[in-house]
Design a protein around this nucleic acid. Sequence first.
DNA 1: GTGGACT
DNA 2: AGTCCACAACGCCCT
DNA 3: AGGGCG
Length: 308
Amino acid sequence: MPKLINQNSEMILTLENKKVKISNPSKIFWPEEKISKLDLINFYTEIAPFILPYLEGRPESLFRTPDGIKGLGFFQKDTSNLNLPDWIETKTVSKMENSLTKYLIINDLASLIYVVNLGCIEINPWASKGPDFEKPDYLILDLDPVESSFDNVIKTALIIKEILDDLNIEGYPKTSGKRGLHIYLPTGAKYDYAQIKTLAEIIANLAHRKAADFTSLERSPKKRKGKVYLDWLQNGLDKTTVAPYSVRPAIKATVSVPLDWEEIRSGLNPEDFNLKTVTARLKKKGDLFSSILYSTGFDLKKVLKKIS
DNA sequence: GTGGACT
DNA sequence: AGTCCACAACGCCCT
DNA sequence: AGGGCG
Ligand SMILES: [Mn+2]
Ligand SMILES: [Mn+2]
C-alpha cells in the first residue's frame, strides 16, 4: 500500500508583482485548532496594513517554527545563507572582526509572506529603524507574570499608567499574545538605547515601589514566583519584542493586540484575541498604536527632573 | 524550511 | 541522491 | 570568572 501522507506541495503567490513560493501550504500549524500554514498566510495578508508600519525599516530576529506550534523552532538572525529574492531589504552588521550578520527587513507584503513561509509564526522587529539604528522609536515595558495571575498583570499595568500620567508620558498597551502585557512609550527617536534603558529601569523601580507585593525586579525566575516581572531590559540594540498584530506560536493562535486603557480591567482575556477574531476587532477599533510612530515623545530631561 | 557539507 | 546539521547573542547581575 | 536570564 503506498503511503500518500506527508506529500510535499508547493504554491506560488503573486503579491504586488512579486512571486512568493509557499511550501506545504496545507501543513497544520495548530493541530488542536486545525489551523494551517495557509490560514496563517491569509491572516497576515489581511492584516498587513496594520502590522507593516511596525516592521518597515526594522531588522528582524526570525523565530522559525516550520513544524508548527508543537515543533521545536529555532532563532535566526543571519540570513546570508538564504537565497533571498532581490526585493527583500537587508542590513548587514559586523559583529566580531570576522563575522557579519545579514538581518532581514520586512518592508512590504511580499517580504512578510516570504518570512511566514520560512516558518515564522511570530514577527520580532527591533525597536529602531534605519537610518539611525541607535535610536528606538519607543521604550518597552514588558510585564511577565511568573506563576502569577493575569489580574496581577492588569493591576501592574494600571499602576504604570498612573506613573506615566504623573510624568506626563504617553503609554500604549498591548497583549503579548501569551500571558503578559507590553506597554510602548513613544520616544520620537530622540534618544539612544542607553538613555531609554535608564528611564525604563527608573519606571520599573517606581512601579515596584508601589506594588512590591505582586511585582518583582528579580532576574532569576525562581525568585519571582507568584509575581509580575517588570522587565525593563528589553530595551537595547539587537533586542526584539513581538510586533503589534503578530500571531504567537501558542495555543489558540493568539495575537499580540493593542488595547484601549479602558480595556485593561478584570475580565480581560488575552486568548480572546486570536487569528479567528482579530480581523473583526481591527475593523471596529482601527490601529490603536497608530500615533506611536508619529509622536514627538517625552522630553527625557523634563521627565528626569520631575522624578528627582 | 532551506542550504551546505558530507557520504 | 540521501542524510545530517545549523540556524541568536549580549549586557546585566548574582554567585 | 562563570552562569542564568530574556
Ligand atoms: Mn514578555
Ligand atoms: Mn520579558
